[in-house]
Amino acid sequence: MIRLHNIERSYPLGRGQMFYVLRDIDLDIAAGDFVSVMGPSGAGKSTLLHILGMHDHGWTGEYFFDETAVHHLKSKERATLRNAQVGFVFQQYHLLDDLTVYENLDIPLSYRHYSKSERAALVADALDRFQIVGKKDLYPRQLSGGQQQLVGVARAIIASPKVLLADEPTGNLHSSQGEEIMELFRKLNEEGMTIVQVTHSEKNASYGKRIVQLRDGWIV
């Protein structure tokens, strides 16, 4: 489903020198896979995830998504592809403070040209599925960290992406909340969703089917 070949990401340091965050990355991720990306801080894990999520455009190399050559796509085409195929879960949840739980779930759908009635149905499904119907009118600040991340996951998958990318999804949660989220990921993966997560936790990594280790930008 995803094929990376010779992906490199660098930043200029001045005087013509470059700082490489990712070097010569070759990676294949099959449909239905659950990959955990691990490595020390600064290894390039989050950068890799943002490249996979097509947020980052400053890389070189080849990136195929379902046989589509992402490296040949223009920014707008990448955005369209991302909106159709990818969901994102953040460590900091990144819910919009001034929107209710319901509105936060509605946001990705509103960017994907769903009709109002379709959006209402999908949000209702998500609220039901994640058992947060009672919290739909609450604001993020009125929720616990675990609840906020639950909403974050619900928001990431509400538009039925093929791939879910998660950047340290349990990093701000205590262990029981973290487990709850990881169980949810396992369930989603069992239902056929491809998942790539970045994690520092061996335990969370074990929920995946395989682990990719990064060090100083290289896959080791």
Binding site: H55, A79, H94, L95, I107, P108, Y111, R112
Partner: peptide, 15 residues
């Protein structure tokens, strides 16, 4: 931050 999240969630430039 808010606009970054919206973009990450799929907001187009025009939106």
């Amino acid at each position: 931050r808010e606009l970054g999240i919206r973009m990450a969630l799929g907001a187009q430039s025009s939106q």
